[in-house]
Protein backbone atom coordinates (compact mmCIF):
# COMPACT_ATOMS: atom_id res chain seq x y z
CA UNK A 1 0.00 0.00 0.00
CA UNK A 2 2.81 2.43 0.90
CA UNK A 3 4.80 1.48 -2.21
CA UNK A 4 1.70 2.04 -4.29
CA UNK A 5 1.18 5.50 -2.76
CA UNK A 6 4.81 6.49 -3.39
CA UNK A 7 4.64 5.40 -7.04
CA UNK A 8 1.40 7.30 -7.53
CA UNK A 9 2.86 10.40 -5.90
CA UNK A 10 5.89 10.33 -8.21
CA UNK A 11 3.55 10.02 -11.18
CA UNK A 12 1.44 12.92 -9.89
CA UNK A 13 4.50 15.17 -9.59
CA UNK A 14 5.60 14.31 -13.12
CA UNK A 15 2.14 15.16 -14.44
CA UNK A 16 2.12 18.46 -12.53
CA UNK A 17 5.45 19.42 -14.10
CA UNK A 18 4.23 18.53 -17.58
CA UNK A 19 1.02 20.51 -17.10
CA UNK A 20 2.90 23.55 -15.86
CA UNK A 21 5.16 23.49 -18.92
CA UNK A 22 2.27 23.01 -21.32
CA UNK A 23 0.18 25.77 -19.77
CA UNK A 24 3.16 28.13 -19.74
CA UNK A 25 3.80 27.62 -23.44
CA UNK A 26 0.11 27.77 -24.39
CA UNK A 27 -0.42 31.02 -22.52
CA UNK A 28 2.59 32.59 -24.23
CA UNK A 29 1.15 31.57 -27.60
CA UNK A 30 -2.24 33.09 -26.77
CA UNK A 31 -1.00 36.68 -26.69
CA UNK A 32 1.93 39.03 -26.38
CA UNK A 33 2.85 39.53 -22.73
CA UNK A 34 4.96 42.58 -23.50
CA UNK A 35 2.01 44.26 -25.24
CA UNK A 36 -0.22 43.47 -22.27
CA UNK A 37 2.28 44.96 -19.83
CA UNK A 38 2.88 48.05 -21.92
CA UNK A 39 -0.84 48.68 -21.94
CA UNK A 40 -3.30 49.81 -24.55
CA UNK A 41 -2.09 52.35 -27.09
CA UNK A 42 1.59 51.72 -26.38
CA UNK A 43 3.98 52.44 -29.17
CA UNK A 44 6.03 49.70 -30.80
CA UNK A 45 9.28 50.93 -29.18
CA UNK A 46 7.58 50.93 -25.73
CA UNK A 47 6.59 47.31 -26.25
CA UNK A 48 10.10 46.45 -27.42
CA UNK A 49 11.50 48.18 -24.33
CA UNK A 50 9.17 46.25 -22.04
CA UNK A 51 10.08 43.02 -23.79
CA UNK A 52 13.76 43.63 -23.10
CA UNK A 53 13.26 44.94 -19.57
CA UNK A 54 11.17 41.91 -18.51
CA UNK A 55 13.45 39.44 -20.27
CA UNK A 56 10.65 38.36 -22.60
CA UNK A 57 13.05 38.29 -25.55
CA UNK A 58 14.91 35.32 -24.11
CA UNK A 59 14.18 31.78 -25.28
CA UNK A 60 10.91 30.32 -23.90
CA UNK A 61 12.72 27.51 -22.11
CA UNK A 62 14.83 29.99 -20.14
CA UNK A 63 11.76 32.01 -19.21
CA UNK A 64 9.97 28.83 -18.14
CA UNK A 65 12.90 27.73 -16.00
CA UNK A 66 12.96 31.13 -14.33
CA UNK A 67 9.19 31.09 -13.74
CA UNK A 68 9.32 27.54 -12.40
CA UNK A 69 12.14 28.48 -10.02
CA UNK A 70 10.20 31.48 -8.74
CA UNK A 71 7.01 29.46 -8.41
CA UNK A 72 8.72 26.77 -6.38
CA UNK A 73 9.94 29.51 -4.05
CA UNK A 74 6.33 30.70 -3.73
CA UNK A 75 6.79 33.80 -5.89
CA UNK A 76 4.05 33.88 -8.52
CA UNK A 77 4.92 37.37 -9.77
CA UNK A 78 2.92 40.57 -9.73
CA UNK A 79 -0.56 40.90 -11.16
CA UNK A 80 -0.66 43.20 -14.19
CA UNK A 81 -4.22 44.26 -13.45
CA UNK A 82 -4.52 44.22 -9.66
CA UNK A 83 -0.93 45.43 -9.24
CA UNK A 84 -0.51 43.18 -6.21
CA UNK A 85 1.38 40.05 -5.40
CA UNK A 86 -0.28 37.12 -7.26
CA UNK A 87 0.49 34.70 -4.40
CA UNK A 88 -1.42 36.91 -1.96
CA UNK A 89 -4.22 37.38 -4.46
CA UNK A 90 -4.65 33.64 -5.02
CA UNK A 91 -4.27 32.81 -1.34
CA UNK A 92 -7.05 35.28 -0.66
CA UNK A 93 -9.49 33.69 -3.14
CA UNK A 94 -8.62 30.02 -2.81
CA UNK A 95 -10.37 29.30 0.52
CA UNK A 96 -13.73 30.51 -0.80
CA UNK A 97 -13.54 28.24 -3.82
CA UNK A 98 -12.24 25.29 -1.80
CA UNK A 99 -15.01 25.59 0.76
CA UNK A 100 -17.65 25.90 -1.96
CA UNK A 101 -16.27 22.98 -3.98
CA UNK A 102 -15.89 20.63 -1.03
CA UNK A 103 -19.23 21.48 0.51
CA UNK A 104 -20.97 21.05 -2.86
CA UNK A 105 -19.47 17.60 -3.41
CA UNK A 106 -20.32 16.60 0.15
CA UNK A 107 -23.86 17.86 -0.32
CA UNK A 108 -24.14 15.98 -3.62
CA UNK A 109 -22.95 12.78 -1.94
CA UNK A 110 -25.25 13.29 1.03
CA UNK A 111 -28.20 13.51 -1.37
CA UNK A 112 -27.17 10.87 -3.89
CA UNK A 113 -25.92 8.11 -1.57
CA UNK A 114 -29.23 7.42 0.20
CA UNK A 115 -31.24 7.97 -2.98
CA UNK A 116 -28.97 5.80 -5.11
CA UNK A 117 -28.92 2.99 -2.55
CA UNK A 118 -32.71 3.12 -2.09
CA UNK A 119 -33.28 3.07 -5.84
CA UNK A 120 -30.98 0.04 -6.20
CA UNK A 121 -32.64 -1.88 -3.38
CA UNK A 122 -36.09 -1.28 -4.86
CA UNK A 123 -35.40 -1.17 -8.62
CA UNK A 124 -38.30 -0.38 -10.94
CA UNK A 125 -40.63 0.52 -8.09
CA UNK A 126 -42.15 3.92 -7.26
CA UNK A 127 -39.19 4.56 -4.94
CA UNK A 128 -36.77 4.09 -7.83
CA UNK A 129 -38.88 6.30 -10.08
CA UNK A 130 -39.13 9.06 -7.45
CA UNK A 131 -35.33 9.07 -7.10
CA UNK A 132 -34.98 9.16 -10.87
CA UNK A 133 -37.41 12.08 -11.10
CA UNK A 134 -35.35 14.06 -8.57
CA UNK A 135 -32.21 13.27 -10.53
CA UNK A 136 -33.71 14.31 -13.87
CA UNK A 137 -34.89 17.58 -12.32
CA UNK A 138 -31.36 18.28 -11.08
CA UNK A 139 -29.84 17.63 -14.47
CA UNK A 140 -32.49 19.53 -16.41
CA UNK A 141 -32.48 22.76 -14.38
CA UNK A 142 -29.70 25.17 -15.38
CA UNK A 143 -27.88 25.88 -12.13
CA UNK A 144 -28.10 29.67 -12.45
CA UNK A 145 -31.88 29.36 -12.72
CA UNK A 146 -32.02 27.03 -9.74
CA UNK A 147 -29.79 29.46 -7.82
CA UNK A 148 -32.16 32.34 -8.57
CA UNK A 149 -35.13 30.22 -7.42
CA UNK A 150 -33.28 29.55 -4.15
CA UNK A 151 -32.59 33.24 -3.65
CA UNK A 152 -36.24 34.05 -4.33
CA UNK A 153 -37.42 31.49 -1.81
CA UNK A 154 -34.90 31.61 1.02
CA UNK A 155 -33.65 35.20 0.85
CA UNK A 156 -36.51 37.24 -0.48
CA UNK A 157 -39.61 35.38 0.68
CA UNK A 158 -38.48 33.64 3.84
CA UNK A 159 -35.54 35.95 4.66
CA UNK A 160 -33.61 33.03 6.16
CA UNK A 161 -30.39 33.33 4.24
CA UNK A 162 -28.19 36.17 3.02
CA UNK A 163 -28.30 36.82 -0.73
CA UNK A 164 -24.61 37.29 -1.34
CA UNK A 165 -21.16 37.57 0.15
CA UNK A 166 -18.84 35.28 2.08
CA UNK A 167 -19.09 36.56 5.64
CA UNK A 168 -20.52 33.54 7.46
CA UNK A 169 -21.22 29.87 6.78
CA UNK A 170 -24.82 30.87 6.05
CA UNK A 171 -23.54 32.61 2.92
CA UNK A 172 -22.41 29.25 1.59
CA UNK A 173 -25.68 27.37 2.06
CA UNK A 174 -27.43 28.37 -1.16
CA UNK A 175 -24.36 28.22 -3.43
CA UNK A 176 -23.64 24.76 -2.02
CA UNK A 177 -27.17 23.53 -2.72
CA UNK A 178 -27.21 25.09 -6.18
CA UNK A 179 -23.87 23.54 -7.21
CA UNK A 180 -24.32 20.29 -5.31
CA UNK A 181 -27.76 19.56 -6.64
CA UNK A 182 -26.44 20.08 -10.14
CA UNK A 183 -23.79 17.37 -9.80
CA UNK A 184 -25.81 15.01 -7.57
CA UNK A 185 -27.70 13.20 -10.39
CA UNK A 186 -24.49 11.84 -11.91
CA UNK A 187 -23.51 10.42 -8.52
CA UNK A 188 -26.98 9.02 -7.94
CA UNK A 189 -27.06 7.18 -11.24
CA UNK A 190 -23.58 5.79 -10.73
CA UNK A 191 -24.38 4.64 -7.19
CA UNK A 192 -27.68 3.09 -8.32
CA UNK A 193 -26.06 1.21 -11.21
CA UNK A 194 -23.14 0.09 -9.04
CA UNK A 195 -25.38 -1.07 -6.23
CA UNK A 196 -27.70 -2.98 -8.56
CA UNK A 197 -24.62 -4.77 -9.91
CA UNK A 198 -23.03 -5.54 -6.56
CA UNK A 199 -26.33 -6.54 -4.92
CA UNK A 200 -26.61 -9.21 -7.63
CA UNK A 201 -22.99 -10.33 -7.15
CA UNK A 202 -22.12 -13.80 -5.96
CA UNK A 203 -20.35 -12.52 -2.85
CA UNK A 204 -23.50 -10.68 -1.79
CA UNK A 205 -25.41 -13.94 -2.18
CA UNK A 206 -22.70 -15.56 -0.02
CA UNK A 207 -23.22 -12.84 2.59
CA UNK A 208 -26.97 -13.49 2.54
CA UNK A 209 -26.39 -17.25 2.74
CA UNK A 210 -24.24 -16.62 5.81
CA UNK A 211 -27.21 -15.02 7.55
CA UNK A 212 -25.56 -11.60 7.79
CA UNK A 213 -27.96 -8.77 8.62
CA UNK A 214 -29.50 -6.82 5.72
CA UNK A 215 -27.56 -3.74 6.85
CA UNK A 216 -24.28 -5.65 6.74
CA UNK A 217 -25.15 -7.10 3.33
CA UNK A 218 -25.96 -3.67 1.86
CA UNK A 219 -23.39 -1.45 3.52
CA UNK A 220 -20.43 -3.72 4.21
CA UNK A 221 -20.56 -6.08 1.26
CA UNK A 222 -22.37 -4.28 -1.57
CA UNK A 223 -21.71 -0.58 -1.01
CA UNK A 224 -17.95 -0.75 -0.68
CA UNK A 225 -17.57 -2.35 -4.09
CA UNK A 226 -20.13 -0.02 -5.64
CA UNK A 227 -18.27 3.07 -4.41
CA UNK A 228 -15.11 2.52 -6.46
CA UNK A 229 -16.31 4.34 -9.62
CA UNK A 230 -18.01 6.96 -7.44
CA UNK A 231 -14.69 7.99 -5.87
CA UNK A 232 -13.18 8.65 -9.29
CA UNK A 233 -16.23 10.68 -10.32
CA UNK A 234 -16.11 12.66 -7.07
CA UNK A 235 -12.51 13.66 -7.78
CA UNK A 236 -13.36 14.78 -11.32
CA UNK A 237 -16.49 16.62 -10.19
CA UNK A 238 -14.64 18.40 -7.41
CA UNK A 239 -12.01 19.53 -9.89
CA UNK A 240 -14.77 20.70 -12.19
CA UNK A 241 -16.48 22.57 -9.37
CA UNK A 242 -13.24 24.34 -8.40
CA UNK A 243 -12.56 25.55 -11.91
CA UNK A 244 -16.06 25.89 -13.22
CA UNK A 245 -18.09 27.52 -10.49
CA UNK A 246 -17.80 30.97 -12.09
CA UNK A 247 -21.54 31.29 -12.68
CA UNK A 248 -22.48 30.46 -9.12
CA UNK A 249 -19.62 32.58 -7.74
CA UNK A 250 -20.91 35.49 -9.80
CA UNK A 251 -24.56 35.10 -8.78
CA UNK A 252 -23.78 34.92 -5.08
CA UNK A 253 -20.88 37.41 -5.30
CA UNK A 254 -18.51 34.85 -3.87
CA UNK A 255 -15.10 36.29 -4.56
CA UNK A 256 -13.44 33.02 -5.45
CA UNK A 257 -10.90 31.55 -7.82
CA UNK A 258 -13.41 31.07 -10.63
CA UNK A 259 -14.20 34.75 -10.69
CA UNK A 260 -10.51 35.64 -10.47
CA UNK A 261 -9.76 33.41 -13.46
CA UNK A 262 -12.50 35.12 -15.44
CA UNK A 263 -11.13 38.57 -14.57
CA UNK A 264 -7.52 37.69 -15.29
CA UNK A 265 -8.38 36.35 -18.73
CA UNK A 266 -10.52 39.37 -19.55
CA UNK A 267 -7.73 41.78 -18.60
CA UNK A 268 -4.90 39.74 -20.15
CA UNK A 269 -3.36 39.44 -16.69
CA UNK A 270 -0.83 36.76 -17.65
CA UNK A 271 0.84 36.07 -14.29
CA UNK A 272 -2.55 35.70 -12.59
CA UNK A 273 -3.98 33.43 -15.30
CA UNK A 274 -0.81 31.37 -15.18
CA UNK A 275 -1.05 31.04 -11.40
CA UNK A 276 -4.73 30.09 -11.45
CA UNK A 277 -4.19 27.48 -14.18
CA UNK A 278 -1.25 26.02 -12.30
CA UNK A 279 -3.14 25.97 -9.01
CA UNK A 280 -6.25 24.34 -10.48
CA UNK A 281 -4.22 21.69 -12.28
CA UNK A 282 -2.24 20.92 -9.13
CA UNK A 283 -5.50 20.64 -7.19
CA UNK A 284 -6.88 18.39 -9.91
CA UNK A 285 -3.81 16.18 -9.86
CA UNK A 286 -3.95 16.05 -6.07
CA UNK A 287 -7.62 14.99 -6.24
CA UNK A 288 -6.89 12.24 -8.74
CA UNK A 289 -4.04 11.05 -6.56
CA UNK A 290 -6.34 11.03 -3.53
CA UNK A 291 -9.01 9.12 -5.49
CA UNK A 292 -6.38 6.50 -6.44
CA UNK A 293 -5.39 6.08 -2.81
CA UNK A 294 -8.99 5.87 -1.61
CA UNK A 295 -9.79 3.30 -4.30
CA UNK A 296 -6.75 1.23 -3.43
CA UNK A 297 -8.00 1.24 0.13
CA UNK A 298 -11.48 0.17 -1.03
CA UNK A 299 -10.31 -2.50 -3.45
CA UNK A 300 -7.16 -4.42 -2.55
CA UNK A 301 -6.80 -5.66 -6.14
CA UNK A 302 -5.85 -2.13 -7.23
CA UNK A 303 -2.91 -1.90 -4.82
CA UNK A 304 -0.50 -3.69 -7.12
CA UNK A 305 -1.03 -1.37 -10.11
Amino acid sequence: MLGFAVRRLALALAVALAVSAASFVLLRLSGDVAAAIAGEGARAEDIAFVRKAYGLDRPLIVQYAEWLGNTLRGDLGTSLYFKTDVSALVADKLPVTLILGLSSVLFALAVSLPLGILAAIFPNTWIDRLCLALAVLGQALPNFFFALCLILLFSISLRWLPVSGTGTWLHFVMPTIALGYYVAPAFMRLIRAGMIETLAADYVRTARASGLSPASVVFKHALRNALIPVVALAAVQLGFLLGGSIVIETIFALDGLGYLAYQSITYKDFPTTQAVVLLLSVVYIFLTFTADIVNAWLDPRLRVA
Partner: peptide, 19 residues
Amino acid sequence: RGSRMSMIFQEPMTALNPA
Protein backbone atom coordinates in the same frame (compact mmCIF):
# COMPACT_ATOMS: atom_id res chain seq x y z
CA ARG B 1 -28.47 -19.44 7.58
CA GLY B 2 -24.74 -19.66 8.04
CA SER B 3 -25.32 -21.14 11.47
CA ARG B 4 -27.39 -24.38 11.47
CA MET B 5 -27.55 -24.64 7.68
CA SER B 6 -25.01 -23.22 5.29
CA MET B 7 -24.44 -23.18 1.57
CA ILE B 8 -21.49 -23.62 -0.77
CA PHE B 9 -21.77 -22.21 -4.27
CA GLN B 10 -20.52 -23.16 -7.68
CA GLU B 11 -18.28 -20.17 -8.41
CA PRO B 12 -15.45 -19.94 -5.91
CA MET B 13 -13.85 -17.17 -7.98
CA THR B 14 -16.70 -14.73 -7.34
CA ALA B 15 -18.33 -16.04 -4.18
CA LEU B 16 -15.90 -14.23 -1.86
CA ASN B 17 -15.97 -10.46 -1.49
CA PRO B 18 -12.86 -9.01 -3.21
CA ALA B 19 -12.72 -6.07 -0.80
